[in-house]
């Protein structure tokens, strides 16, 4: 299969074809529309190495994310960043390329944090091993983490090695009846205490929190915090965006902010996660107006769903930074083969 992919890339170089890298298609809505011949990775699948005591898993990029998570769960482990799937067919490669993380992100790290190494097919048709399968590795530039969130514009991911973690012994959900402002104040205060928080969600007059850790540690924190027992299902529903909030047909914005930043005070509906660091906004507001407000608070906004796949889906980059992005793209994909324009115009 790898040989076939290499041959496709070499052929594309020869005849000037553009390639649209495709996994399970679960995140086709995410990012800008791009043209090109489909390069399907879903058949390039299978776990290559997994030794639970190493806390590392290596698999081919087309391996379904669900298969990887099931294997980890069988061994009492998990992907610490709790990635969204958005489809039963979502793949490991697509997950890394999108670089999205779920409810545990501020406490368990990001998708990028968990990547230890990749095997990459670059735009010259060369197969490169970048990073490795060990926790600590500072040899060479960190190109494996550069692939996370690059939306396939820098090369074809063939294999990925991820750091995994033990599942916490105990996990509970607590609910509190609090409006958004009171919940935000509470979260800032809790954020400065040694509590085993692993997820938060503020919406519709409720604050939901998840505690994860040892049995005794979670019990002690539960006593300290109070609240009522909540439903664990909310975390999956938030991650997969199956909550009613996410069904609104208006544009859905993902707003990233310092966690203690004040309320957005923008028209539309909001749902806040990550201790305040990720806020979802459903709004018809003009992109420029929205982004000005968000930037003033120290954050950035991505048009996540319900868009036309054109224009500035991702936060515009400063001119010097965009120029550097172009040179980095050129260094890895000199012929501009992969996912042209998926992330930014001209990349």
């Amino acid at each position: 299969m790898e040989d076939v992919l290499i041959e496709r890339v070499r052929q594309a170089i020869a005849d000037g074809t553009r390639l649209r890298i495709q996994g399970g298609g679960g995140k086709a809505f995410y990012g800008r529309r791009c043209d090109g011949e489909a390069l399907d990775l879903s058949a390039h699948r299978g776990v290559i190495a997994y030794e639970p005591s190493e806390l590392v898993i290596t698999a081919r990029a087309g391996t379904p994310l669900a298969e990887i998570e099931a294997l980890l769960a069988d061994n009492g482990q998990m992907l610490p960043f709790e990635p969204p799937h958005f489809s039963a067919r979502s793949t490991l490669g697509g997950m890394v390329a999108a670089g999205l993380s779920g409810p545990r992100r501020p406490w368990g790290g990001s998708a990028r944090d968990a990547v230890l190494g990749v095997k990459l097919l670059n735009g010259r048709g060369e197969v490169l091993r970048l990073g490795g399968q060990v926790m600590k590795n500072v040899a060479g530039y960190d190109l494996s983490r550069l692939m996370v969130g690059a939306l396939g514009t820098l090369g074809v991911l063939l294999e990925v090695s991820l750091k995994v973690l033990p599942r916490p012994a105990e996990e509970i959900t607590l609910d509190f009846a609090l409006d958004a402002e009171a919940a935000a104040t509470r979260l800032v205060e809790w954020g400065r205490r040694p509590l085993p928080l692993s997820a938060t969600l503020v919406h519709a007059g409720r604050l939901h929190v998840r505690l994860s850790g040892s049995t005794q540690g979670v019990r002690a924190a539960r006593q300290a915090l109070g609240g009522e027992p909540g439903d664990d299902a909310i975390w999956r529903a938030a991650r997969e965006q199956t909550l009613a909030f996410f069904q609104d047909p208006r544009p859905l914005w993902r707003v990233s902010l310092p966690p203690a930043a004040p309320a957005l005070s923008l028209p539309g509906e909001q749902l806040s996660e990550w201790g305040g660091a990720q806020r979802w906004l459903v709004s018809d507001l003009a992109a420029d107006t929205l982004r000005r407000r968000v930037a003033a608070l120290g954050g950035h906004a991505t048009l996540f769903r319900n868009h036309d796949g054109a224009g500035a889906i991702f936060p515009p980059l400063a001119p010097t930074l965009l120029a550097l992005h172009r040179r980095v793209k050129q260094a890895l994909d000199p012929h501009g083969l992969f996912n042209p324009g998926r992330l930014y115009e001209g990349l």
Binding site: G99, S101, R105, P106, S110, R112, Y141, D142, L143, R145, L146, V148, G149, A150, L154, S256, L257, P258, P259, A260, A261, W274, A277, Q278, L297, G298, G299, H300, T302, F314, P315, L317, L321, L324, H325, V328, L343, Y344
Partner: peptide, 15 residues
């Protein structure tokens, strides 16, 4: 005003 997670674009901070 640092504190926001997962900046847009390529992860040049990691690089």
């Amino acid at each position: 005003r640092p504190g926001a997670l997962d900046a847009p674009g390529y992860d040049l901070l990691a690089l």
